[in-house]
Design a protein around this nucleic acid. Structure first.
Lengths: 225, 225
DNA sequence: TAGATTGTTAATCGATTAACAATC
DNA sequence: TAGATTGTTAATCGATTAACAATC
C-alpha cells in the first residue's frame, strides 16, 4: 500500500452521498455524468468531487466524464465490504422504529437485522426482517452474528453503558443519537447525530437571517385551537 | 458591535450541546463546573470550551470555574430568541412522527407546533400539541404563525419543492433529512442530516477497525429464523 | 504560597479552493 | 481545432491546538 493517507471522514461521507445521487441519476437515464453535476447535487465543488473520486480509484474521461453505472460500482467496491453489513439497533422507541423503517427496503448493503430493548413488551417479534430481542441477549446475539456496526437510540442516561456492552460484544462502529460523548476504547468509531442541537443551530441562524427580531405572526396566534 | 467575527456554525452547535450537558449536571447537583468537565462530556478540548464560552460573554473564575445555572442562562440568552421558537414540520411519516415525539416535552425553546402532509388521512388531528394540516395550507399557516424554522422530512423527490414553498412562506432555516442539496436563495440556512450516509460512514470505519476482513459469525447465521 | 483554572494570543494542522497542464 | 473536462499540485482559508500570563 503506497498510499499513506487514509481517506478522511468527510470524504467517506461525501462518497456515500455521491452514490445516492448517482443511483437516482442512473434511474433517470443518465448513463454518464460530469463532476460539476455531482458537485451541484451534493453541495460540493467539482474539484472536490474529482479529488474524492481519485481516492476510489475510478477514472473518468475528459470527453464523457464518468460512466454512471461504473462509478456507482467503483464507489461500492471502495465503501462496502465483501458482503452486506449487518447492523444492530438498541432502543426500540419512536426513534428506533423510525430508523428501522427508514432502512427497510433501502441500502441493500446495510441491513438492520437485530434490535434490542429492555421493555419485554417490545421484544420477540419482527419489524420487517428485523428481529427484536431483550437487551440481556445482546452480547450473545451480536457476537454470534459477528455484528460490527450498531445504532444506539436509547435515552442519554443509558447510552454509555449500552455502548460499552456493544463494544465488548465486538462492535467497532457506533451511530448514536444521545447528546453526550461516549467514552470508548481507542479504535472504536463513533458518529454522533444530535437532532436537537442541529435544530437549535437552524433556529439560531434562521432568526439571524430574519433580522433577529421576534417572530411576527401576521394575524392572531399560531395555535388558533 | 465591535465584534467583527460571527460565531461559527460549529460553535453554535457546541454551545447547544454544552447547554444540554450543563442542564444534566445541574440536575445532578453540580452548581459549578470547570471547562475540562464540559470538554470531557462534549468531546472537545478545555481550551475550545473556554473560547466558545468567551463568545457568549459569560466569564468564569479561576477559583470556581463557571456557575452552572448562570452559564446555562447565558448560553440561553445567546442562542435563544426573546420568545420560544415555533417550528413547522413537513412530512408526517415514520421519521416525522418520531421527530415530533422526540421534541415533545423537551426543549421548551423549540416547539414543533404545526405539521403538514399531503396524505389527507394524516391531517386534521393533533400529535401532542402539534396540529396537522394538509400541505395546501402550508403557506397560509406558516405565514400567519410567523414561523421561520422548519423541518423537511419528505421523500427526496419532494424535498426541493417543499423547501421552496417554505422559504416563500417566510422560513429562513431548514433542517432536512433528504440526501440532496437544496437550492435556495442566499441567506436561507440549511442543515442536512443524512442518516444513511452517517451509517455508511460508521460501517466503513467499523470494518476498518475490525481489520477489514468479512464479518465472521462465530456460529451459524445471524438470522436463525 | 503552590496548584489549578481562566482568558487570550500565536502556532499548527487539515481541509477546501484555485489553478492549470493534459486530455478528449 | 476550439471548448470543455479531467487529474493533480500549490495557495488559501479557517478551525483546532498549544501555550502562557493573569487570576483565584
Amino acid at each position: 500500500m503506497a498510499k499513506s493517507a487514509e481517506p478522511s471522514e468527510r470524504t467517506i461521507g461525501r462518497l456515500s452521498l455521491y452514490r445516492a445521487l448517482l443511483n437516482r441519476m442512473l434511474r433517470a437515464g443518465e448513463s454518464n455524468v460530469y463532476s460539476h453535476q455531482i458537485a451541484d447535487a451534493a453541495g460540493a465543488t467539482p474539484a472536490q468531487v474529482r479529488r474524492d473520486l481519485m481516492e476510489v480509484g475510478y477514472h473518468g474521461s475528459a470527453a464523457h466524464g464518468y460512466d454512471t453505472r461504473e462509478l456507482i460500482r467503483a464507489i461500492g467496491a471502495f465503501l462496502d465490504g465483501p458482503c452486506p453489513e449487518q447492523v444492530a439497533l438498541v432502543g426500540i422507541g419512536n426513534l428506533g422504529r423510525a430508523i428501522i423503517e427508514f432502512f427497510r427496503d433501502r441500502r441493500p448493503n446495510l441491513r438492520i437485522t437485530v434490535a434490542f430493548d429492555r421493555d419485554r413488551f417490545k421484544v420477540n417479534r419482527m419489524i420487517g426482517d428485523c428481529r427484536c430481542y431483550h437487551v440481556e441477549e445482546m452480547p450473545r446475539v451480536v457476537r454470534q452474528a459477528g455484528i460490527r456496526t450498531a445504532i444506539v437510540a436509547v435515552p442519554v442516561a443509558a447510552a454509555q453503558q449500552v455502548a460499552e456492552q456493544l463494544v465488548t460484544s465486538g462492535v467497532r462502529g457506533l451511530l448514536h443519537f444521545a447528546p453526550v460523548r461516549l467514552h470508548l476504547p481507542e479504535g472504536v468509531f463513533v458518529e454522533n447525530m444530535d437532532v436537537a442541537a442541529s435544530l437549535e443551530k437552524v433556529a439560531y441562524f434562521a432568526r439571524r437571517a430574519a433580522g433577529g427580531e421576534a417572530a411576527e405572526p401576521s394575524a392572531g396566534d399560531a395555535n388558533p385551537a
